[in-house]
Design a protein around this nucleic acid. Structure first.
Lengths: 124, 124
DNA sequence: CTATCACCTGGACCTGACTCCAAGTCAAGT
DNA sequence: ACTTGACTTGGAGTCAGGTCCAGGTGATAG
């Protein structure tokens, strides 16, 4: 699959896919004889994984570190696991925070409803 | 309360507090005769609110819009409510996404555990 | 055989959200 | 009177994370 199709499939611009590869967010993609990127299914799994992690807010730097560990082979499994555990814990913490914000937002919205509904009743 | 104390209280740098005021993320803070900011309790409530919303990822632009509507008075309550509802829905959507990512992360971590535990047993 | 089209590279540019700095003012302590 | 320290402003700089562009190459259609 060439870059245009990968771009459609993951809804990421071709520029972004090239950028991800350039900075090491996904492993190097193989090329055809004339230098065109040919995305394999494994490449696609990486893209999917990275897109998902980025959407949840994991920093690029950390993901680059993960890919780099991955490419160093089996001696790095412990380090990779530790990295994932760390990021999971951060993610959970952020979700707790967001839950709090959500509650606060809902309270504020309720207070607006108590203001707006009586105003609407006045019109009747 | 002067800027240094507000800074300590909210764990935001003085520069950030001035920046927030400058761009309209919090309403204008009153000054002493010699031009020093004097944060009132209401100012503090704004700062707390904004800090909470920013931590959950609401964009500055949207929050500026909210403050601006607030300052236009009672005719804008509907618009303010709509803004909050919109942001709440976005927040909920992001949390659903993050929940998915969390699951994926946990699966990956589990697979690392199945690799690492047998390796540890070998050492016995 | 040439025009088109998708692709390539390197590097400049952009946005969001701060962060830092120089130069100046003011109040309080010695 | 002078030094110190917290404050002020305007403007430049920084960082993450892309995004855009000019100039070039290679395959394919007419």
């Amino acid at each position: 699959m060439k870059i245009a199709e990968a771009s459609r499939r993951f809804d990421l611009s071709a520029d972004t896919l090239r950028y991800y590869e350039r900075v090491g967010l996904i492993p190097t993609v193989n090329r055809t004889a004339s230098g065109i990127r040919e995305y394999s299914e494994e490449d696609c799994r990486w893209i999917g994984f990275i897109k998902c992690m980025r959407a949840a807010g994991l920093p690029i730097e950390v993901l680059i570190e993960y890919v780099s560990l991955f490419q160093k082979g089996d001696e790095t499994t412990e380090a990779r696991k530790a990295l994932l555990v760390g990021q999971r814990d951060l993610l959970e913490a952020r979700m707790v925070d967001m839950q709090g914000t959500l509650g606060r937002l809902n309270q504020k919205i309720e207070r607006y409803e108590q203001l707006v509904v009586p105003a609407e009743n006045d019109l009747k």
